[in-house]
Design a protein around this nucleic acid. Structure first.
Lengths: 341, 341
DNA sequence: CTGTTAGCGCGTTCAA
DNA sequence: TTGAACGCGCTAACAG
C-alpha cells in the first residue's frame, strides 16, 4: 500500500531556502534575474529535496502543452496499421522532436472524434484523411486550437498539406491508358459523409475522380466505362475488393487510391495466378524485403508529415502560413503495371 | 493578425445563467447533483457561448493527464523506423484507446532522455529497450510517475514485460546448431552503458548470451568459438554488419537479435548471391508483400505493448501488478535457416 | 435536495 | 527580491 506522499513543490524550496516562490522560479527560468548566491542556494535545495517543477502546472501557467496532436480518424487498429499513416507520423514526429515537442496520438474518444477534439491536451492538431465538419471547426475555434489537414475534406479556411490530387490522379490513369488498358477497375477511397453533404468541399476522392475524367477524355472515355468501387484502406480491404470484383468482371488493370489496397489485390492475383496489372497510390517505403516493386504514384508521406507540422508550428506561434501547401508527386515505375494484352 | 480573444470560461457561464461556478461544474460532471432546470439552463448557455471546459485546467485540477507516455530511447528517425517498435506501439495504443486515454510519444528532449522524463505530461511511462538508471528512477520517484519497461535493462524494482530471454535465445541457437551450423556469427544488440556498469542488472543482451551459452554447452562449444558483434537495430545496421563480417569471415549462419537486422543481412546476401542461413529474433508482422519468410524467434510485439499498458494502468490506479510479466515466444520456421552444408 | 462560498493545485509574472 | 494575483475548473464544507 503506497502512501500518497506529497510532491515537493516550489513552496517547499522557498520555505527551505528562505527565498520566495518567485525567486525559486527565477532560479530555474531566468537565473540572471536574481543574485548568484540565491540561484546557488535554491538549486542546491532543489537538488536535496529532489525538486522538479511540475510540468503540468508549468504548462497550465504558460498556456502551452508542448505537444502536437495527431488526430486519428478511426480506431488505432485501423489507422496505425496503415504504412502510409506511419510514414506521415514519422515526419510529424521528427519536426516535433526538433521543436522540443512531444507527439500525442489521439484516438476517437468513446468512439467519437468530436469528444477527442474537446478533450485533447495539445497545442494544435494534425489530421489525415479526416472530414473536418462544422462541429469540429466550432470546437477548435472555441478552444483556439490551430489545425492542419492532410488529405481529407474540408473548406478553404483550413490549412492543408497535400499533393495536387487532380493532376496526380490524371497522371496515374494516363499511365494505365497509355499501356493500352481499357477494362479498368478503380478502387476508390470511401467518400465521406461530410463531402457528400457539402458539394463545394473538395474531398480527395472528388479531386482524384476529376483527374481520372481528364485522363479519360483524351481517349473519349468516361468514368462510367470503368468499374468503380470504394473500400477502406487496409490490405484486407484490398483482398476483399479484388475477390468481389473478380467474381463479376475481369479487368486488365486495377487502379487503387492506396498502396495498402494495391498490395491486398496483388495477394489475391498471386493466389489465383492471374496476370492483371495493378497501380497504387502513395509510394510507401521499401522495407528491403520486397522482391516485387509496386508501380505507384509516389507522394512522400514523411514530407507531408513534416510540412504539416511546420505549418502547425507557425500557426501556434501566431505566424502567417500558407493555407494550401502542395508537395510533389511522381510516377514510380515498378513491375506491376504491364502492357495490356 | 489574430485577436487574442479570451476563451469562454466556466465563470462566463455562471455569470450568464446567474448560477455559481460550482453549479456549472456540476451540470457537466454530476448533473444529478442539481435540479433539472439548472442543468438545462446551464447547458443551454454553454451551447450558446460555445463553452467547452478547458481540458488542461480540468486535468490540472484532477491531477491527471489522460495520456500514457511512450518514451523513445533514441531519436525518432531510428525508433519509429523499427517495425517491432511499431507493433509494440500499436499494442499500447489499443489499450489506451479502450481506457479513453491518449498516447504520447516522447522523444529525447534536447537529445536528453532525462530532460524528456522531467517534462513529460503523462500519467505513466512505457519504455522499450531503455536502460533505466538511477537518474531516471529518481525523477520518476519524485514525480510519482509509474513506469513499465519492455526489454531494456533495469533493476528488479521496475515493472517489466518481456519474454524469457534466456530460454528464447537458447532455443534460437539450438535450432541453428541442430541444423549442423558451427561457423556462426552472432549479431548482438549493443550492450548499454548502464548494464555494463551494473553487473547485477540483467540486460536483454546478457540474458540472451546466457541462453546462447546453454545451447552451446550441449555441443561442447562456447561463445568464443563464434563471431560476435554488436549493432543498433535497423536494416541499415544489418547491412553494414554483414558487409564487415563477410570481409573477414565466412560463417554458414547469421544469428541476430532483431529481425530488422536480419533483413538487412539478407539484403547483402542476396546481393552477393551467397547461400548463408539467417535467423532473426522478434517476429515482425507480415505485410503481405514478403515472398521469403524469415526464420525467427517470434515474440508478439503487440502483446508486449498491450500487457505493458495494462500493467501501467493498474499502477496508475494504485492497484497491485506483477513486477515481471512474461509473454510467450516460439520458433517460427521460415525459409532462411537451412541445413549446414 | 439544491445551491453557494471559498480554497485548492502549482508555477509564472506584474507591480511594487 | 517579493507579495499577491492569475490561469480555470474541481470539490469539501456548509446553508437553506
Amino acid at each position: 500500500m503506497l502512501m500518497k506522499v506529497k510532491r515537493t513543490t516550489i513552496q517547499d524550496i522557498a520555505d527551505k531556502t528562505g527565498y520566495s516562490k518567485t525567486a525559486v522560479s527565477f532560479a530555474f527560468n531566468s537565473p540572471s534575474r536574481i543574485s548568484k548566491e540565491a540561484v546557488e542556494a535554491i538549486l542546491k535545495a532543489a537538488e536535496e529535496l529532489d525538486y522538479i517543477p511540475d510540468p503540468m502546472a508549468r504548462n497550465f501557467s504558460l498556456g502551452k502543452h508542448m505537444s502536437l496532436g495527431f488526430l486519428l480518424p478511426q480506431r488505432v487498429e485501423y489507422t496505425l496499421m496503415n504504412p502510409y499513416m506511419q510514414e506521415v507520423m514519422r515526419g510529424i514526429a521528427e519536426v516535433c522532436q526538433e521543436h522540443g515537442y512531444m507527439l500525442t496520438l489521439i484516438p476517437p474518444l468513446h468512439s467519437s472524434v468530436i469528444e477527442a477534439v474537446k478533450n485533447a491536451t495539445v497545442d494544435g492538431i494534425i489530421t489525415l484523411g479526416l472530414a473536418i465538419d462544422k462541429n469540429i471547426k466550432g470546437i477548435l475555434r472555441q478552444r483556439q486550437m490551430p489545425i492542419v489537414a492532410i488529405d481529407g475534406s474540408f473548406d478553404d479556411e483550413i490549412h492543408s498539406v497535400s499533393v495536387d490530387d487532380v493532376s496526380a490522379a490524371e497522371l496515374q490513369l494516363s499511365k494505365v491508358l497509355e499501356k493500352g488498358h481499357r477494362d479498368i477497375a478503380i478502387i476508390s477511397l470511401p467518400e465521406d459523409a461530410y463531402a457528400k453533404r457539402n458539394s463545394e468541399a473538395e474531398s480527395v476522392v472528388k479531386k482524384r475522380k476529376k483527374g481520372y475524367m481528364k485522363a479519360l477524355e483524351k481517349y473519349s472515355m468516361s468514368l462510367s466505362d470503368l468499374t468503380l468501387v470504394s473500400t477502406e484502406t487496409t490490405l484486407q480491404d484490398g483482398i476483399n475488393a479484388a475477390r468481389t470484383i473478380l467474381k463479376e468482371k475481369s479487368p486488365t488493370c486495377f487502379v487503387t487510391m492506396s498502396d495498402a489496397v494495391a498490395l491486398g489485390i496483388i495477394e489475391v492475383l498471386d493466389e489465383l495466378n492471374l496476370n492483371i496489372s495493378v497501380i497504387g497510390f502513395d509510394g510507401i517505403e521499401e522495407d528491403g524485403f520486397h522482391t516485387r516493386r509496386l508501380t505507384t504514384i509516389h507522394q512522400s508521406g514523411k514530407e507531408k508529415g513534416m510540412r504539416s507540422a511546420e505549418v502547425l508550428f507557425s500557426l501556434i506561434n501566431g505566424e502567417q502560413a500558407p493555407i494550401k501547401t502542395l508537395i510533389p508527386y511522381y510516377f514510380s515505375e515498378g513491375t506491376t503495371l504491364k502492357e495490356a494484352l
